[in-house]
Design a protein around this nucleic acid. Structure first.
Lengths: 228, 228
DNA sequence: CTTTTGTATTCTGTATGCAGCATTTTCTGT
DNA sequence: ACAGAAAATGCTGCATACAGAATACAAAAG
């Protein structure tokens, strides 16, 4: 929950090739973060004038970013009334996890078949780092690495469409997972599942990996169900 | 391949509750159709000034619609150069079909478990209508009903997220399927597969339905692979 | 004849302005 | 005092205007 701060514009006296990062992209990710991190809770009306002023941007690019997010499913467009941050019911979350499960099972299968050894090693590295963060009790970094690992496995599948769909759902769920702070024993269980995942991946055990990924998400539902 | 025509604005003297359909939605579907039907072939730059004039709309709502479609994956945003209609490689199409297959298998499973008898009857009705069109040799209507049936089955699953993801992929593939005109024997095979699908659904045979849907999409790849 | 550089044009990116709808507040009649 | 209507306010939706970047073209140099 941060303060709403103006967007960082590119430094005026910056040297080097003045890499003009498109405002559109910046705005989109900024708004996305604001929604995920709870600065804009579900149900909030996105007030164009006000929000634009806070971010230091005029209404036009802001509106374009909002339309983009609407297509992504993070906000809802109400005719003549602007945009509202979408609210997900418990069933919505469960449904999303069900689909995510199917997607990750597929990703696991494909990854075992097509991933390079180097790619698998990278995932292993992420995993080891995550375990370190877990042991250090660093929840935020653990959470981020956790997401990265799932994303990385999906990337290993080499299927762009799969990565797309997975990314959309992952984003929609980020907010939920962000608030879902499970207790120590569930947390330990989650880490253990991850350990199994990596082992299966390294052994290229298609069936096993698929199974663990599926189980992992079934449990994920139990871990977040009360937070919704 | 139609001419580019101005958007239909709502009739001036329309009676009844003047249902103000938002221009945004109209524009989005219009552009979507133009891309699917090939009026805007892959690689085409979406020229804001020109396109806006042809459609009778100013640049602002047009740009918003384009951003929306970009998020949907139909167009690509190139910084400082506007938007380009996305081009899908053969691998892209195959990847999309792979994911679609996983999603439809899931949908089939869920539909068998949760669909109402009335819902199944509706799908059956669509199917019968489709067979009629097939026998009449009406390709366009056959094609549309075909898509509707798949969408309907996904709807029966009662999983909104699943329907979303399926819809996005379905839309991206529409253009490919639109051009893919398979020969009579493959067409007949597709219809036969559909018949199996409906039968499995009516019998609520989870395994069978899942299997047929999967097989159907494997064959779909063979049917369109040459069109890509 | 080829290549390079300067200039002009075109298009995108952003800001602002105006009109219409929604909502809220205020006024009037009972 | 309360209900209904009318006015006023605020916001969205769309159009237009302006500034900066990219490209195309042309002229000049090698």
């Amino acid at each position: 929950m941060n303060e709403i701060t103006p967007l960082e514009r590119r430094p005026e006296g910056g040297h080097g090739p003045i890499r003009r990062t498109a405002l559109h992209d910046t705005l989109v990710s900024h708004l996305r973060d604001m929604i995920i991190e709870g600065d804009l809770p579900p149900g909030t009306r996105l007030h164009e004038g006000q929000l634009g002023e806070q971010l230091g941007v005029s209404r036009t690019p802001l509106r374009e970013a909002i339309k983009y997010l609407a297509s992504e499913g993070l906000v809802e467009l109400v005719p003549s009334r602007g945009a509202v941050v979408k609210r997900f019911s418990a069933k919505d979350v469960k449904d999303m996890l069900t689909v995510l499960q199917a997607l990750e099972e597929l990703a696991g299968r494909l990854a075992c078949e097509t991933a390079s050894d180097a790619g698998i090693a990278e995932v292993r590295a992420l995993h080891d780092e995550m375990v370190r963060r877990y042991k250090a009790g660093d929840r935020l970094q653990y959470y981020k690495l956790n997401q990265q690992i799932h994303t990385a496995i999906v990337q290993l599948s080499g299927n762009a469409a799969l990565a797309d769909m997975h990314g959309v759902l992952q984003t929609r769920l980020k907010r939920i997972r962000f608030i879902g702070h499970e207790g120590p024993e569930k947390w330990a269980a989650a880490v253990a599942e991850h350990e199994e995942m990596i082992a299966a991946l390294e052994a290229r055990d298609t069936v096993k990996l698929s199974e663990v990924l599926g189980r992992h998400l079934t449990k994920a539902w139990e871990r977040v169900r009360d937070s919704v």
